[in-house]
Simulated assay, not measured.
Amino acid sequence: MPHLTVTPEAASQLRLQLMALTRRLRLEAQDDELPFAQLSLLACIERADGTATPSALARAEKLRSSNLASLLRELETGGLILRAADPEDGRKVRVRLSEAGRSVLEAHRLRKDDWLRAALAGLPPQRLELLLAAGEVLAELAAAEPPTARQP
């Protein structure tokens, strides 16, 4: 199989297409009761599955500790998260979603999924199949480590 070269233009075009879809999904969720930063943090807490510490959340979400502290306070005040001392190290705090937090996150996802499902239903079967297969590749790209510098 021949080696394909990705041109800067092709990479830029794909980036723009992905950004357009991301913007559209955000637009579909604009009726969310929470700002995007809070929803993103809720999703990060969910992914940690009860093991989230504030410092790990700050790293994962690329937030300064002061910004994270403010978001956590707002989420806790809203009853969307619960904080508890780490059972193994009482100096650490663990953060997890409350049932209300899970419900808000699920409603947010359903709004976006409903729009996407309706949009996908309008595609011809061949294009839908192609797009669903591309989704697997996009997931691989999202999880990929940055390439290391090539040696001459």
Rank of each mutant, 00 (worst) to 15 (best):
Ala84Tyr: 08
Leu14Phe: 14
Arg73Gly: 14
Arg83His: 07
Gln13Ser: 08
Arg23Ile: 13
Asp89Gln: 12
Thr53Arg: 11
Ala119Pro: 03
Ala100Phe: 10
Ala119Val: 06
Leu68Trp: 01
Ala100Arg: 15
Ala29His: 07
Glu99Ile: 14
Gly78Lys: 05
Arg47Lys: 11
Leu68Ile: 00
Ile45Phe: 04
Glu88Pro: 04
Arg23Cys: 03
Gly78Ala: 11
Arg94Cys: 03
Ala11Cys: 05
Leu57Met: 02
Arg59Asp: 15
Gly90Ala: 15
Arg109Leu: 12
Arg83Gly: 00
Leu21Pro: 04
Ser70Arg: 15
Phe36Val: 09
Val93Asp: 04
Ala37Phe: 14
Leu82Ser: 07
Leu75Cys: 08
Ser103Glu: 06
Thr77Gln: 10
Leu82Val: 13
Thr51Glu: 09
Arg102Ala: 15
Glu46Leu: 07
Ala56Pro: 10
Ile45Asp: 02
Pro124Met: 00
Gly78Thr: 02
Ala84Gln: 10
Val93Gly: 02
Gly50His: 10
Val104Thr: 07
Arg24Asn: 08
Ala118Thr: 15
Arg64Asp: 07
Ile45Ala: 03
Glu28Val: 03
Ser70Glu: 13
Gly79Arg: 00
Leu97Gly: 01
Ser98Asp: 00
Ala58Met: 14
Ala119Gly: 00
Ser66Trp: 06
Thr22Arg: 13
Leu110Tyr: 15
Val104Phe: 02
Glu46Trp: 11
Glu129Ala: 14
Ala107Gly: 00
Thr77Lys: 01
Ala84Val: 12
Lys112Met: 06
